[in-house]
């Protein structure tokens, strides 16, 4: 009953077949799921995609078991500080990264299996008042943290044994960094958004802050998800978690904005809007597909380049969706409920 009015209000309508149910798992003792994700895991010469579920005090790793079943392999118990987020680490294997904290992130930990000791373990990578964190290709993690006096932006090179091999300080902007996004095809470039609604660009090799570009006063506070460099322009996918209905089509869930890094000028490219009514929550982006949970409890998926909704996953009789995350490598969409149910869909 939620999908129908959404479908009717969208210009070209979501294609029902674009999300195909694959499998479901349920964490039986979890009553407050906080995040879900998927990681590549290699064991006994076989590399497979495993699901990770996070509750406040525990993170579980799930292995696929035919047909369409999942078995819990291990649970890491983290009882001192609540888990608040799983941090995706692209292109890594046998490694889960989690952020822990109360209102904001206080710790970042790696969860892994150690073949030396034949046991699962976790290790601390970073502490502080952490405002934003992102995992990048080549086993790198960037975070921004703030003390009363200053902001620190740091890149950590992770090791396969769960430690840090090296650290690189990046030049901080004056405003607090609220989100980071990797730049597709440019491993040395990093994009971020600030509390002052600017997009900033770093050179990760030198740590230089290359450019600060204002997003525009007409946009609500923006969060960067992903960026692509093409033909001398930087295309940044932004979402507006506290967005209001500011456009004729409704509330914008995602926007693609083109920036000219040479001049700092910008121009809107596409807007992926919800029809009037349901507000969006913070979403997730994979390649050119965006997904977000709506306040109605449905999950909506957009083609960000065309600016159109391609699929809607309505809340079922079992309850509302609370989490939507893309699995790595185009493996599909993970939708989770607070009761610990996770469903995997092929997209």
């Amino acid at each position: 009953d939620v999908a129908e009015p959404l479908t009717a209000a969208l210009p070209d309508g979501p294609r029902e077949e674009s999300l195909q149910f694959v499998s479901e798992l349920k964490e039986p003792w979890c009553s407050g799921a906080v995040d879900v994700g998927a990681v590549w895991w290699a064991a006994a010469g076989c590399r497979e995609l495993r699901v990770v579920t996070a509750c406040e005090s525990a993170v579980s790793l799930w292995q696929p078991r035919a047909p369409a079943c999942w078995a819990r392999v291990h649970t890491w118990h983290l009882r001192e500080i609540p888990v608040i987020q799983i941090v995706p680490l692209p292109d890594t294997c046998n490694l889960v990264c989690v952020a822990l904290g109360e209102l904001e992130i206080g710790e970042i930990r790696l969860l892994l299996y150690s073949s030396d000791t034949d046991s699962f373990k976790h290790s601390l990578v970073k502490t502080g008042n952490i405002k934003a964190v992102v995992g990048l290709k080549d086993w790198r993690l960037v975070s921004s943290s703030r003390t009363m006096q200053e902001q620190q932006v740091e890149m950590v090179f992770l090791s396969e044994t769960g430690g840090s091999k090296d650290r690189q300080t990046l030049m901080p902007p004056e405003e607090t960094v609220t989100a980071f996004a990797e730049v597709e095809g440019m491993s040395e470039a990093l994009v971020g958004t600030t509390a002052g609604n600017s997009v900033v660009v770093w050179n990760l090799r030198t740590g230089q802050l290359l450019r600060k570009m204002h997003v525009g006063y007409s946009y609500p506070v923006s969060i960067s998800h992903r960026a692509y460099s093409d033909s001398g322009l930087l295309f940044v996918v932004l979402s507006h978690p506290h967005g209001k209905e500011s456009e004729p089509c409704g509330s914008p869930a995602f926007r693609v904005v083109a920036f000219n890094p040479r001049t700092g000028r910008s121009a809107p490219v596409t807007s992926s809007c919800l029809p009037p009514g349901p507000a969006g929550r913070r979403g997730d982006v994979w390649d050119t597909a965006g997904a977000a949970v709506l306040t109605s409890g449905a999950v909506a998926v957009w083609d960000l380049l065309r600016g159109c909704c391609t699929a809607v996953l309505p809340p079922g009789p079992a309850g509302q969706w609370a989490l939507a995350r893309w699995a790595p490598g185009g493996a599909g969409l993970l939708a989770g409920r607070r009761d610990g149910t996770v469903q995997l869909y092929r997209y």
């Binding site: 470039a189 230089q208 290359l210 001398g232 000219n260 040479r262 001049t263 121009a267």
Partner: peptide, 23 residues
């Protein structure tokens, strides 16, 4: 969007800004 909206475009913006920005 056109070049007139965004100003002159450079394909080597990353290298150019890295040369110009403070170290």
């Amino acid at each position: 969007c056109s070049e007139s909206d965004l100003g002159p475009i450079s394909l080597n913006w990353f290298e150019e800004l890295s040369t110009e920005a403070p170290p």
